[in-house]
């Protein structure tokens, strides 16, 4: 077995254990944490397309999750849509929004791109906050009912968690396929050598724009899961803090790795849960963690662990051969 496949085996085993853990613990409290982690993980994976694979640091990604959730909330509450048809519309809206915002943000690169995404993200926050006739303003929109699925009532935490596992697996598989696809390779090439990629025939701007839309789409999916779970949406969900939180998940876990955002999402969600139980200073901790991670662990947990495993594994393999 090669080291790479060993690492894959270890990762898959850990992933299955992690997914099973809330069910083994049994209590709804843990199962609900599991659902929140998975929603955050899908959200973080979507941002990872931009930050990790595209080298485009966006600080406005919460706008897509939030807009998607708002659309579902508005359509189900005020226009009699079913949850699922509202979700379809939400995805369409988010894709169109990502196409427009992407076209604007990609007028800039690097830090300018970052600044524009931040500004655009705050626009959506501003709309949600100020357009209170429709969005409920600072009160948010409460009481969105969790839907049934195949006759099963998803209010039951275990069932909802099972659906989240399925959704997460689809997202993870989709991500794996994407990063190994022609477009995915092209995107990673434009991250490392945009000029060369252009000369090789890759349309750098278009590749980035499509990636922006795909990232928006998956953030929209996360938004649907989010509103399904919480049944409530508030302007804060579109805000800067939420965008920073998901960026922290990606960077802490390891940008540009498949499982990094998943690990990052787990760390951030659990940390937030634990901290909030004792003090109300989550934002302070978020800020300090951000600074600490960027300075002390800039490449994230997953690449760090990977290197650690690689340094341990050759020895293990030699032992195995000596033993056999």
């Amino acid at each position: 077995m090669t080291n790479t496949s060993r690492i894959t085996t270890i990762s898959v085993t850990l992933l299955i254990l992690a997914l099973a853990a809330p069910l083994l613990l049994g209590q709804p409290f843990y199962i609900n944490i599991g659902s929140q982690v998975l929603i955050a993980a899908i959200f973080a994976m979507s941002l990872n397309i931009l930050v990790g694979y595209g080298g485009m640091t966006s600080i406005g990604h919460a706008a897509y999750l939030g807009t998607s959730a708002y659309v579902v909330a508005l359509l189900t509450l005020q226009h009699g849509f079913s949850f699922y048809s509202a979700s379809a519309v939400a995805l369409l809206v988010v894709v169109i929004m990502a196409a427009i915002f992407g076209a604007i943000a990609l007028r800039g690169t690097g830090i300018t791109f970052l600044m524009i995404t931040l500004a655009l993200g705050q626009t959506m926050w501003g709309v949600a906050f100020r357009w209170s006739d429709v969005t409920g303003g600072d009160n948010g929109l409460p009481d969105i009912k969790r839907p049934d699925l195949f006759g099963l009532n998803l209010v039951e935490p275990g069932l909802f968690y099972a659906v989240m596992i399925a959704l997460f697996m689809v997202a993870l598989a989709g991500m794996w396929i994407f990063i190994h696809s022609g477009l995915g390779l092209s995107l990673q090439g434009t991250r490392d050598q945009p000029r060369r990629m252009g000369m090789l025939g890759h349309h750098v701007w278009l590749v980035r724009w499509i990636a922006f839309i795909i990232a928006g789409f998956w953030a929209g999916v996360a938004g649907i899961a989010f509103i399904g779970y919480h049944g409530y949406i508030h302007p804060l969900s579109l805000g800067l803090a939420n965008s920073a939180e998901v960026l922290l998940m990606v960077i802490a876990g390891g940008a540009g790795t498949l499982l990094g955002p998943v690990v990052g999402a787990t760390i951030v969600v659990v940390l937030k849960m634990v901290v909030s139980a004792y003090v109300s200073r989550w934002v302070l901790l978020l800020g300090c963690t951000f600074v600490a991670i960027v300075i002390l662990l800039p490449e994230g947990v997953v690449p760090g662990l990977e290197r650690l495993l690689k340094s341990i594994l050759p020895a293990a393999r030699d032992d195995g051969e000596a033993g056999s």
Binding site: R281, G287, I295
Partner: peptide, 28 residues
């Protein structure tokens, strides 16, 4: 903070983002 991260522009920007939250919460 920033000088430790010289020539790593993105890291510097992210540190200022983190500090923004820390300062805001301390103000609160």
């Amino acid at each position: 903070l920033l000088r430790r991260l010289a020539n790593r522009t993105l890291a510097q920007v992210l540190v200022t983002l983190g500090l923004a939250f820390a300062i805001a919460d301390i103000c609160l």
